[in-house]
Write a protein that binds this DNA or RNA. Structure first.
Lengths: 206, 206
DNA sequence: ATATGATTTAACCAACTGGTCAAAGATATA
DNA sequence: TATATCTTTGACCAGTTGGTTAAATCATAT
């Protein structure tokens, strides 16, 4: 069992633990995750988990922050940028799907967290600068300019996020129901980069 | 602690258990649920759970079937009926949202199950008669008739389901981010009965 | 009244869980 | 080489969990 890394640089025990913990937590959720399994995946003794991170909660917290900070800032930055609404919809669809393609488990992870500790999620979003009012102002402005028909920011954002995230959460069911294989599903996901912006933009374009 | 029902009819111990189990399982998921908590909620001794249902798994299975059979047949029936695509989109949006309004926890429950046992879900859906090919045939026909632009059935169904379900799963986050109170959120959900069909139909209408 | 079967309970158990700890290995420093 | 510090380990612990069981209670028919 050689978990030692050849370069001897970044892959120390702590990194090993974080990687294992991320895999187990995102796949099983907090309740379903076992410290022993994380230790096994990392190839180390269970006590080491508590040596580096005091407790299961603290270890989870570390993963949680890591995940949220690699995931959401980019998307929120786009939403809060001075692009047009249409451009924002296109960019978020592309970035969000691309990111989820590389980390397919993150969607389930975040949804697990919604039912376990939604307040922390909200706090984290607000911390990164997410604010519905900015989008609402932009919608009002573009509606007055005759570009779009008015819509509540909550609806637009809910539509955008749900259309991007859902296929990653429901993947097993969608694959099972449609008979798609892995390649076909990847193509399906890729197509959504076009379909989602088309759907949302067509619906609000004047 | 009077759990006895006055009518003396349907609310026997078994019903009491099912009701409690449904509440606990849907809110906490299988891993997060505790048999003791279910017993407490039902106001009975924990051993009675095992008297009526052999194990936690069996009890969960009972809830799972009950939930799926009260929830999905109606929506799938609409999708498989001889209505037009636009009518189906409108009816499913309305029925699905209305059903989730009355059972807001079901969305989270089903999503928990997707990561725990997706095969069972797929099997159940197929059992109820869900079939993507029927929708695909209809799409092709209506596209050839010049009513809509062609789209994969997988995309259309994924769009429809995700737009309906997402606000119920992400409710705490959406409320926290937007500052909506409970009444405002109910209104928000109600509005989606119009917005979802509008969004999806506008996007595929020729 | 009482025998009989179904229901309910308190007490208990083995397995598992997160977490601790003392001791053993490493590693660097002197 | 001796020593001090950091890392890693196996053994262990207390609390929790799903599940069992023998006895008590209740209902019902005779």
């Amino acid at each position: 069992m050689d978990n030692v890394n050849m370069t001897g640089l970044d892959s120390n025990t702590e990194q090993l633990i974080l990687k294992a913990a991320r895999s187990v937590f995102t796949n099983k959720g907090f309740d379903g995750a076992r410290m022993q399994e994380i230790a096994d995946v990392a190839g180390i003794n269970k006590a080491l988990l508590h040596y580096y991170f005091r407790s299961k909660d603290k270890l989870f917290e570390a993963i949680f922050k890591e995940v949220l900070n690699t995931v959401f800032p980019k998307i929120i930055a786009v939403l809060m940028s001075p692009l047009t609404l249409f451009e924002k919809i296109e960019k978020v669809s592309y970035n969000y799907i691309e990111m989820l393609k590389q980390n397919p488990d993150l969607a389930i992870f975040v949804f697990h967290e919604i039912s376990r500790n939604p307040e922390r999620l909200v706090g984290n979003f607000k911390n990164v600068g997410a604010d519905f009012k900015i989008i609402q102002t932009q919608i009002t402005k573009e509606a007055e300019a005759g570009i779009i028909i008015p819509i509540k920011a909550e609806h637009l954002i809910a539509n955008l996020i749900s259309l991007c995230v859902f296929p990653f959460i429901a993947r097993p069911v969608l694959m099972g129901m449609s008979g798609m294989n892995k390649d076909e599903y990847d193509r399906f996901i890729e197509e959504r980069k076009q379909i989602i912006p088309h759907t949302l933009i067509t619906a609000i374009k004047k």
